[in-house]
Nucleic acid binder design. Structure first.
Length: 315
DNA sequence: AATGCAATAT
DNA sequence: AATATTGCAT
C-alpha cells in the first residue's frame, strides 16, 4: 500500500471546514469588548447550545449572535461599525458592570470561558492529528483551527488535558481508538472520568496512542507550510482568510503527507488521490442549518446526540 | 516569547 | 465539573 496521505486529507475536508460549523462555537465566544462597544449589558452568562439527551422543545434558535468574524480585542477598541444584526438577544438581563464600564472596558474585561463542544474538540483533534504530535503546539493548533476568539491559552489548557487523557488511554486500552469510547474502562478516577466525556466524543487518531516509529523506508521532504500562513501573524484574522490558507496548506501537504518529524504511518485508507479543489466560502453570513446528527459515539458509552451543522452544500 | 506541566483558582 | 490561571522549568 502506498502512502497516499492525501486520502485522509480528502476525508478531512469533507468533515471539516465550512465556517458555518464554527457558528455555534463563535457564538459562545462573544467578545465582551465587542459587547461593551455596543452598549449592551455584559452577558456574563450566556448559554451555549450544548445539548445532551433531553432538552427543551425549543432548540436554541439561532437568533443570537451570528458571527464574530474577526475583530476582537484591540486594547483601544476602535469604534467599529455596528453589524447589520443587532443583538436582539434577550437571554438574561443580569446586569453586571453597572459600576463604570464606560471608560476602559475592553482592557480589563474577562472573556467568557470557552466551552469545548464536541465539534470544537473535533477541530482540535483534527488539527493536532494533521500537524503531527510533535508539531502540535498551542500556537500552531490555534492557527489551524482558525476559530476566531480562540486564544493560545485556550488551546494550551485543552491540550494539556488532552495529553493527560491520551496518556491514560495508552496504559489501558489500545483498541478503543475506533470510536473514542473507552470500552472496558474500569479504572477511571472521578476526575478522569469527567474529562473523558469530552475527549471520548471525538475519534482519537491511532497514532496518538501508540509510540509510532517512522520507517526510514519512505522519508518525506520538508514542506514549508508556514509560507502559506506567513501573511497573518495575527490570530484575529478573518476565518475566510485562514480557510484559504488552509487550502493551500492542503495542497502542499496533501501530496507529501506531512512536515518532517510528523509520524504518519496510516496504513488505512488507500484511495486514489482525489483532486482537492474546494471553493472558498467567503463569509458565514446566512442562517446555518441546524440538524441533529447521530454521530455514533461507538463503544459502550451509550448513544448521545450532538448538535452539528451541515455545510450548505456549496460544493 | 513559547512551551509543558503541575498546582491552584474560579 | 470544566476551564482558566499561575508558577516554574525548559
Amino acid at each position: 500500500m502506498r502512502e497516499e496521505d492525501s486520502n485522509w486529507f480528502s476525508r478531512w475536508e469533507e468533515e471539516l471546514p465550512s465556517p458555518e460549523e464554527l457558528m455555534p462555537i463563535t457564538q459562545t465566544l462573544i467578545t465582551p469588548d465587542l459587547a461593551l462597544a455596543f452598549d449592551i449589558r455584559t452577558p456574563n452568562n450566556n448559554n451555549n447550545n450544548n445539548n445532551t439527551t433531553s432538552n427543551s422543545p425549543t432548540p436554541q434558535p439561532p437568533n443570537s449572535l451570528p458571527t464574530l468574524s474577526q475583530s476582537v480585542p484591540p486594547p483601544s477598541s476602535a469604534p467599529s461599525p455596528p453589524p447589520s444584526q443587532p443583538f436582539s438577544s434577550d437571554l438574561d438581563s443580569a446586569e453586571l458592570g453597572s459600576g463604570a464600564p464606560g471608560d476602559e472596558p475592553a482592557r480589563t474585561l474577562k472573556r467568557p470561558r470557552l466551552v469545548w463542544t464536541p465539534q470544537l474538540h473535533k477541530r482540535f483533534v483534527d488539527a493536532v492529528a494533521h500537524l503531527g504530535i510533535k508539531n502540535a503546539v498551542p500556537k500552531t493548533i490555534m492557527q489551524l483551527m482558525s476559530v476566531d476568539g480562540l486564544t493560545r491559552e485556550n488551546v494550551a489548557s485543552h491540550l494539556q488535558k488532552y495529553r493527560l487523557y491520551l496518556k491514560r488511554m495508552q496504559g489501558l486500552s489500545s483498541g478503543g481508538g475506533g470510536g473514542g469510547g473507552n470500552g472496558g474502562g474500569g479504572a477511571l478516577s472521578a476526575a478522569d472520568a469527567a474529562t473523558d466525556h469530552l475527549f471520548a466524543s471525538a475519534p482519537v487518531p491511532h497514532h496518538f496512542l501508540h509510540p509510532v516509529r517512522p520507517n526510514s523506508d519512505h522519508f518525506l521532504p520538508f514542506v514549508p507550510v508556514a509560507a502559506a500562513l506567513q501573511h497573518h501573524h495575527n490570530q484575529q484574522m478573518a476565518a475566510a482568510a485562514v480557510v484559504a490558507a488552509q487550502q493551500q496548506y492542503h495542497r502542499q501537504v496533501g501530496q507529501f503527507g506531512s512536515p518532517p518529524g510528523g509520524q504518519y504511518e496510516h496504513g488505512f485508507l488507500a484511495r486514489q488521490p482525489q483532486p482537492v479543489h474546494r471553493m472558498v466560502v467567503p463569509v458565514p453570513a446566512h442562517s446555518p442549518t441546524y440538524v441533529e446528527d447521530l454521530d455514533s459515539p461507538v463503544g459502550g458509552g451509550g448513544g448521545r446526540k450532538v448538535l452539528t451543522l451541515f455545510p450548505t452544500g456549496d460544493d
